[in-house]
Each structure stands twice: as C-alpha cells, then as structure tokens.
C-alpha cells in the first residue's frame, strides 16, 4: 500500500473511532428516550421502542421543564455576558498594561483558576445567604456567573494583537474603553465565541451550585430537574433520557451555530 494511502487510512481510522466514542452515547440516549423503561436494557440499542414520545409527554406532565429550561438559558446567558464583559476588560488590562501589582494580580487569577467550586461552596453559600440571596435569581446566577478562564483566554488573544492597533486608535482619539470594545474586541471575535461557548456549557451543566442555593421548584435548572427522576430505588430511565435529549439540544444548537468561529478561536488562542 502506498505511504500516503496508509496515512489516510490511519487518519480516517482515528476519526472513525473518535466519532463512535462521541456519538454512541448520544445515539443511546436518543434510542432510550423512545423506549419503555423495561425495554431499555432488554432490547438492542438500535432497535425501535414502543414508547414513542410517551416519555417526553409524561416527563413534561410531571415537572415544569419549560420553566427549568428558561431558568437554565437565563443563568447561562447572564454568565456569558458577565464573563465576556469582565473577561475582556481584565484581559485587556493584563495584556497591554504594566502597573505596580499587575503581576501579583495575574498570579491571583491563575491560582483562582485552580480552585474548584466544591472547595468554596460552603463559605460561598454562607456569604450568599447573608445577602438574603438564597432562593433568588440573583443567588442562582451571580455568584458563579463569572468564569475566570475568560480572563485567561482574552489575555492570550490580546497579547497576540500588535500594539500598533491600540496606538493608532489612541492617536485617532479613542479612549481605552472605546479601543477595547470598538477596535480590538471585534478583531478577536473567534475568541469571544470560544469564551461564550465554554462559559455557556459550564453553566448549562452546572449542578452543585443551583442545588445548594435553591430549594424553590420555580428556580430549578434543567440538571436539577433531570435528577428528580432518579429516585432512591427507581430511576425512570426513559424519562431521564427524554429530558436529557431536551437539555442537550440548546447547547448543540448554540455550538453548531458558532462552530466555525469556535474552531478558528481554539486554534488561534491555543486553548480549549
């Protein structure tokens, strides 16, 4: 076999394995969502079930999933907005300005990247509780809205931008905020997309914080709603899968719409 053909064969082989690993669970989820709970583990994965859309109907009858969806979308979008705004501001500062403690602040940012939510969830809860924010949208959204990774990714993107653009804008009469939002942010749109997608996803899947800070049914997000089907002795897999499909769709749509920029952005920023 010629070398180039062998290389192609190998490359496509790797891609095929990755595809199977990625899509098999999704296919399993789709197929299971259309089966009765009893059929899921007794029939082959790619066989048709007898439930039809029954799991979807019963899941939505049992819990207000549209409300959960709205809560999730709201929390995730606020998080995206906050992260892009603050991340760009802080990233610009770290990338293009040197001042007394900038290195110290930068180390603080890097260190805080390494602290998982689980480590700070109790003090954070106590603080939020002292604000009277438990069981409120503010408590659900704001404490975890800002994704520190945003600062890091924006800084890397801005560092790569030549200073000439900023100097030119200064000579042209733009202030620093105007330079950031009218001149350099539009130049790093793929980075904005990367930060948005990562942040949206992180918040969309967030389980622990909403669980801790809300007990009101009207404030639940999708991951909490899904968990409601997993009772101690009896998990209703058909319905769990139905709401999982429902919960995966928005992120899939969000990602596919921005996919081109996302790939461009991850390549140019060198981060994921």
């Amino acid at each position: 076999m010629p070398k180039s053909l062998l290389r192609k064969f190998f490359a496509y082989g790797v891609i095929a394995i990755a595809l199977v690993l990625t899509f098999y669970p999704v296919a399993w989820m789709l197929s299971a969502s259309l089966k009765e709970s009893g059929e899921i583990f007794t029939t082959p994965v790619f066989s048709s079930g007898s439930a039809g859309l029954g799991n979807y109907v019963s899941a939505f009858a049992e819990y207000p999933f549209f409300l959960y969806l709205l809560n999730s979308v709201f929390a995730s979008l606020v998080s995206v907005l906050v992260t892009v705004l603050l991340g760009a501001l802080a990233g610009y500062s770290f990338a293009k300005f040197r001042y007394g403690l900038s290195t110290v602040f930068w180390i603080v940012v890097l260190v805080s990247l390494m602290i998982p939510l689980e480590a700070v969830v109790i003090p954070l809860f106590l603080e939020v509780h002292s604000f009277g924010w438990t069981n409120t949208y503010a408590g659900l959204v704001l404490p975890t809205a800002f994704n520190v990774v945003g600062i890091f990714i924006f800084r890397q993107a801005f560092v790569a931008l030549p200073d000439d653009y900023i100097d030119a804008a200064r000579v042209d009469g733009a202030g620093e905020l105007r330079i950031l939002f009218s001149v350099i942010l539009p130049m790093v749109l793929p980075t904005v997309v990367v930060v948005s997608v990562l942040t949206f996803n992180l918040n969309w899947n967030s389980y622990l914080w909403p669980l801790v800070v809300t007990s009101d049914d009207g404030l639940r997000t999708l991951p909490l709603g899904m968990a409601a089907f997993q009772a101690g002795y009896n998990t209703q897999y058909g319905e769990v899968m139905a709401v999982s499909v429902f919960g995966t769709l928005p992120t899939a749509v969000f990602f596919l719409a921005l996919q081109r920029y996302f790939v461009e952005g991850t390549i140019s920023t060198g981060v994921k």
């Binding site: 030549p162 000439d164 653009y165 100097d167 030119a168 804008a169 000579v171 001149v183 539009p186 130049m187």
Partner: peptide, 9 residues
C-alpha cells in the same frame, strides 16, 4: 501618525 504595519482596523 502612519505606522509601519499600517494598523488599519
């Protein structure tokens, strides 16, 4: 000012 890199937006 005119820059070496032109710095056109």
């Amino acid at each position: 000012m005119v820059f070496q890199s032109y710095a056109l937006y």
